[in-house]
Design a protein around this nucleic acid. Structure first.
Lengths: 224, 224
DNA sequence: GCAAAAGTGTTAGGAGTACACCCATGC
DNA sequence: GCATGGGTGTACTCCTAACACTTTTGC
């Protein structure tokens, strides 16, 4: 059915992901430079228009692959952006997501058909972005903060496990907050979310630290 | 710009509200019967297609007015539904909301241009609904449960204030859970959310109960 | 042996939970 | 005066937050 009513005509859906990582205790987001209008040559988040023949998460993954070459990362719903003038081209509603990857294990393409210069930007040094992406990444960070205290969303950052001092720095970076070492360890161990791997690894100091990994289980109560 | 690419053509946005109330300790949702295809003569939630010239919340309010005559109720974001086949007509993404009204103070139209038989349905007696509205109302109830422990969303239910035993029954109905009277009162008073009005009112017993009202402030931590 | 970070235990305060009795009113 | 629900206080438990010392290793 072709809709003629101009009130409804030419609407579209953006699926947009804020891809985060933490490098040396600094939370960063992946930005790409647009090759096409609108907002040609401006930085933007990873995403684009949803196709009719795909579900939302399929579109998220396809866009992520097309614009960064990244495959197979877990994404989590963040929010909806729908101001009527948010796109200069036509009426677009944005459904937004967060993704997390280990920047050392996952590589991305610097250049694709539609993007160039892909790179990590510290969350306090994000340039002016295309569309309403500055707002979107701000809300995504808020979603991420809520998610890390509730879910195992961080597991993608530590494919080979983590030591407690190491993951504490990540929590502190994302939540922008310091924790007492002893209480942090106690709490993280008290919830049934992580388990010992009988390995050790050096992080900062000279004394090797025990390596933990996330369990399969999920939790639903607040952690911090 | 008219988009020709069939991958993007003919997409649309639904804005859909689950309007809740609590009557005699039973949580109910407002349903209307559709007069038009698709899903003609089936029950559905209140909502419809967003226009190009309105923001999301404007569309929510317009649809609510068009299909129930209700004006001016607060709405809260609930979720997004976007399965590719959720509408038989064309690709539609649903942005969903919750609304709360006092069924004694706010009246609605039984019949409108596009709907008929509007009525309250207890949440455990909801019939089969049009589109994916059964799923939507289920998630909306979950959102409502999360919201009543975090916000003053219930204030719309009590335009002239409430007694504590009265609002306790509402919490118990929505959360489907019983609370100890003394602890309920203590907690509700301990968070800085409600205030005494120096009035009294009879609810169930013969002893008049103090009437409270919500403060302007919001809170951000869990209540129950 | 010393610097640097890892690892551990105790205590005090606050929030949540369980629980029993008196109060005000209508009839 | 009695039945009905409204209003209050206390003790116990558990979670959280504050805090200091010992251990392991590299140099």
């Amino acid at each position: 059915m072709q809709v003629k009513n101009p009130l409804y005509k030419d609407q579209g859906i953006h699926v947009i992901t804020s891809i985060f990582t933490v490098i040396d205790g600094v939370t960063k987001v992946l930005l790409v430079k647009r090759k096409n209008s609108p907002f040609k040559d401006m930085w933007s988040l990873v995403g684009g228009a949803l196709y009719n023949n795909e579900d939302l998460l399929d579109g998220v993954k396809r866009e992520m692959f097309e614009k960064t070459g990244i495959v197979n990362i877990d994404t989590y719903f963040s929010g909806v952006f729908g101001k009527k003038d948010r796109s200069p081209v036509k009426r677009m509603i944005a459904i937004t997501y967060i993704g997390i990857i280990d920047s050392e294990k996952v590589s991305f393409l610097k250049e694709t058909l539609k993007t160039s210069n892909a790179d990590w930007f510290a969350i306090d040094k994000i340039p002016k972005l295309a569309f309403d992406h500055n707002e979107i990444v701000k809300e995504a960070l808020k979603s991420l903060q809520e998610n890390i205290v509730n879910t195992d969303i961080l597991k993608a950052l530590f494919p080979s496990g983590f030591t407690i001092p190491e993951i504490q720095r990540v929590y502190e970076s994302i939540l922008d907050k310091k924790f007492d070492r002893r209480n942090f360890r106690k709490k993280l161990l008290s919830i049934d979310l992580i388990q010992d791997t009988n390995k050790v690894r050096n992080f900062k100091g000279n004394k090797p630290a025990k390596v933990y990994k996330f369990k399969k289980s999920k939790i639903s109560k607040n952690v911090f």
